[in-house]
């Protein structure tokens, strides 16, 4: 498993040179608190994000909870919720580390084959991940939609940065995209 720093070191070692992109790492350090806040925003809302993403996936495809569907009976629905949480957890780890290696090695490696063997439908899984991607962006930006959330609207705090952590939103989205492309 690598983080942003050890990734730079491994890259430098391949050419037996010293780490030269110190400026990039300094930026990582300078924006460290934003990153920790983003990780906290996802971790604090994780169970809500997971259940909402799976519920949204089922709403769009009611067949999943009919007899013979992949989220029927409760046992399989529970497995589905568990898997969504696992994927979100590894994306959170990757965001904390600033590198996708933990996500690749420990979550995505062989996931597609496992799901194919178990008969899990890829399109539904991808849809749930897409919903989590949108949720993660909303939580990192801290602008969850009032229209969708209604009385359950929950914000992390007041806006601290002007750009609403645009670079971290992009980075988190890239990890979700990685999951989607690994599955499809």
């Amino acid at each position: 498993m690598l983080d942003a720093f050890s990734r730079a070191v491994v890259a430098a070692d391949a050419s037996t040179s010293t780490v030269s992109d110190i400026a990039g790492l300094k930026k990582f350090v300078a924006e460290g608190n934003k990153r920790l806040d983003a990780v906290n925003a996802i971790a604090s809302n994780a169970s809500c994000m997971v259940s909402d993403a799976v519920a949204g996936m089922i709403c769009e495809n009611q067949g999943l909870i009919q007899a013979g569907g992949n989220c029927y009976p409760n046992r399989r629905m529970a497995a589905c919720l568990r898997d969504a949480e696992i994927i979100l957890r590894y994306v959170t780890y990757a965001l904390l580390a600033g590198d996708a290696s933990v996500l690749d090695d420990r979550c995505l490696n062989g996931l597609k084959e496992t799901y194919a063997a178990l008969g899990v439908p890829t399109t539904s899984t991808v849809r749930a991940v897409q919903i989590m991607k949108a949720q993660a962006a909303a939580h990192i930006q801290d602008n969850p939609s009032e229209a969708f959330a209604g009385a359950k609207l929950r914000k992390m705090g007041t806006i601290v940065t002007e750009d609403r952590c645009a670079s971290l939103v992009a980075e988190a989205s890239s990890y979700f995209d990685r999951v989607i492309s690994a599955l499809s």
Binding site: F5, I42, A97
Partner: peptide, 18 residues
């Protein structure tokens, strides 16, 4: 590193970063 150690122990317990 500190980050990878923290992630490894969180992963072993199956929890989000606390």
């Amino acid at each position: 590193s500190v980050v990878t150690t923290v992630i490894a122990s969180a992963d072993a317990a199956g929890r989000f970063p606390t």
